[in-house]
């Protein structure tokens, strides 16, 4: 039982090395990408990478830059939710759209949508709330034309907080769906 984390961290270390070789920007881990930033700034940061031109316009892909971006897994892989909500906030639609384009351009890619909640309330009930969030993203991607076979959903409920601590600043970072490739 104790061997597993060791093997896992080794695997993570190897994959980080591998990724570092082909990507100029590090931080493929969600935790790394968000450790010091708040959700909204991280969301805004995607604007440069994955054309936010058509805000509110689903399905319309942009030109050359967009094509290039679609060959890489979008860097922003976490979106955040309001308390007790599973609706995708408008500020994160561009992020989900970028993943939709990537998955459509790469039919062999598979994503696991990991749903999370903050710590308030009971554990198993939160497991169900986390699943609702992940399924909301799954539905959104599906509507965008992503094949169901490319997506799976796992809820972690409140079991894997992104940050420890109480108060809205911690809670808001924990209510999230992570795109895990």
């Amino acid at each position: 039982m104790q061997l597993k984390p060791l093997v896992r961290s080794l695997a993570v270390a190897l994959s980080v090395l591998a990724v570092a070789g082909c990507s100029s920007t590090g931080g493929t881990q969600d935790g790394d990408a968000y450790g010091s930033q708040s959700g909204s700034t991280a969301g805004a940061g995607t604007g440069s990478g994955v054309g936010t031109s058509g805000t509110g316009q689903y399905g319309s892909t942009s030109g050359g830059a967009g094509q290039q971006a679609d060959s890489r897994i979008p860097e922003v892989r976490t979106i955040y939710f309001d308390y007790d909500r599973d609706s995708i906030k408008s500020e994160y639609e561009s992020v989900v759209m970028a993943h939709a384009r990537y998955l459509q351009s790469n039919p062999n890619a598979r994503v696991t949508l990991q749903g999370h909640t903050d710590e308030r309330g009971t554990r198993e009930y939160n497991m169900a709330l986390g699943e609702r969030r992940a399924r909301a993203v799954q539905r959104f991607l599906n509507i965008q034309g992503v094949s169901p076979s490319q997506m799976s959903v796992v809820s972690y409920g409140e079991e894997r907080p992104a940050v420890n601590g109480q108060g809205e600043s911690a809670y808001s970072q924990n209510r999230r769906v992570v795109f895990s490739y």
């Binding site: 969600d30 935790g31 079991e159 894997r160 992104a162 940050v163 420890n164």
Partner: peptide
């Protein structure tokens, strides 16, 4: 019991 945070937990 639980220790750690995010992807790095025991």
């Amino acid at each position: 019991t639980a220790q750690g945070v995010g992807d790095n937990m025991q």
